[in-house]
Design a protein around this nucleic acid. Sequence first.
DNA 1: TGTACATCAGTGAACGCGCGTTCACTGATGTAC
DNA 2: TGTACATCAGTGAACGCGCGTTCACTGATGTAC
Lengths: 221, 221
Amino acid sequence: MAASAETETPRQRYRTQVQNEIKKHAWEQIATEGTSALSLNAIAKRMGMSGPALYRYFANRDELITELIRDAYQSLADTIHAAAVDAADIRSLAQAMRTWALDDPQRYLLIYGTPVPGYRAPEDTTRIAMEIMAALLDAAGAEGLGAMPPSPLQGRLQAHLADHRGWAGAHPAKPATLHRALVFWTRLHGVLSLEVAGHFSGMGFDPAELYAAEVEAVTGL
Amino acid sequence: MAASAETETPRQRYRTQVQNEIKKHAWEQIATEGTSALSLNAIAKRMGMSGPALYRYFANRDELITELIRDAYQSLADTIHAAAVDAADIRSLAQAMRTWALDDPQRYLLIYGTPVPGYRAPEDTTRIAMEIMAALLDAAGAEGLGAMPPSPLQGRLQAHLADHRGWAGAHPAKPATLHRALVFWTRLHGVLSLEVAGHFSGMGFDPAELYAAEVEAVTGL
DNA sequence: TGTACATCAGTGAACGCGCGTTCACTGATGTAC
DNA sequence: TGTACATCAGTGAACGCGCGTTCACTGATGTAC
């Protein structure tokens, strides 16, 4: 009880420090061997510790992975927030996301890649995911450009969105804005996910150009 | 030498039959446990065979996975070809791809999901991937619609594509058509990959509507 | 048609491996009086 | 300031497990004469 909530005891500091070191090695392992090969024993070995020692810091393997996913989400959210503060337009936001993804493809893939069947993301991460969408909405709404060209289908989608925009939460937005944000989001991921998975290699063009073109296309909506 | 190249001996027939059964069980396992959990021993057990028996049919685990990837690619190529024959417009092609993907998400993800670091796809599959792009090009070129609205960036991209359109191969196409095909491809994957990974769940709208809207948007290009 | 031989599917035992995880323990660090 | 106790990091041995893969083998099926 001597330690207040604000000041950190040396033990606590050491604890979080080792915890971070474990995560750092976990990321390295994910980058080189893939997420499925992530192993507590291997991490311990690389840190010069015995395997069971890690159980002081994470209850089990799943908890470590969950923590990594949480960190990945948070990192993306921070990146997008920072970009939105600098300049709340769609271009800079898109660039920030691309840089973030290519900077560490496995981190991107941990979130947006193949999900392992049966794994349930903690409440926590979906909250962060909503934060990201909210930032997106801001950027999509800030651009005072022409509305989406109306079409019967888009009309239906917009009505649909107007009905159940659960993820907009406290962020009410016009259906057209919601649609713009969604389209923005999916198009970026379309290019990014294919690029990160190497599906453009051998096609002889620069994915950055395609990405930029897609961003411009959304700008015109 | 008695067996000609055309007629199949009973043994050969049995062989391919068992081989297919192994693959069938492999797909089931992938669907329920994920690709990383695919195990020869587990497949053998489910087939009522001993583990080593499978080595009569596949040299090792990697060869089985490679074969599954090849089959997945071929299945997608066939689906797209069939759709292109029925009606060579972009809409039906997009619908075919979506159905194919949602029909067996793990099959889709085996191709377009997280790649395992270090795994090198065989020459074979990249050939099929090019076939798919060729079918796409046909569909993109057949639509006699307005060209992409020119912009400096798109101009640069088109020049880039005109220079190195390696994947177009014997399929020469105008840069605008190439760009259209690429955009088509990436936008569909943008919606599909996010949907398949469950990133729309809880957002309260129907991904099918978004998908259809994206198809219509490409139609107008 | 029958016999001798070759081919090949499948088995069971065995290998080494690395995994996640538990447990009883040592030794260092912090806390209370 | 010193002593007694509690907390906690880390170790090493051990568990059971399932994996991929090799090997010597049995028995059935096909082939050649």
